[in-house]
């Protein structure tokens, strides 16, 4: 199990379009990835879950990858979050 913390800087927070892209990527990975905020933790493969985190700009997100190629999966998800720009 590997973990990394990333801050979402996109001004509009985690809205539907980037959340959709994130979920699509998470579903394609060979292991389980979870996202956690100070409030709760959800599976990165669940659109309802990701949206329900209600992530606003500036929120710290802890990404955890478990199983499969953990390091690569973690990297992929963290990069996607860090690169959300709108």
């Amino acid at each position: 199990m590997v973990t990394e913390t990333v801050v979402l800087t996109a001004p509009n927070g985690m809205h539907a379009r980037p959340a959709g892209e994130l979920v699509k990527l998470a579903k394609s990975l060979d292991g389980k990835v979870t996202l956690a905020t100070s409030v709760k933790s959800v599976s990165a493969s669940s659109m309802l879950g990701v949206l329900s985190l209600g992530i606003k700009s500036g929120t710290q997100i802890t990404v955890t990858a478990e199983g499969g190629s953990e390091q690569a999966n973690l990297r992929a998800i963290v990069d996607v979050i860090a690169n959300i720009k709108d």
């Binding site: 669940s46 659109m47 309802l48 879950g49």
Partner: peptide, 11 residues
């Protein structure tokens, strides 16, 4: 259709 297949519902 996207939502109904969401793992959160089944879980």
């Amino acid at each position: 259709l996207e939502i109904i297949d969401d793992e959160m519902i089944v879980d």
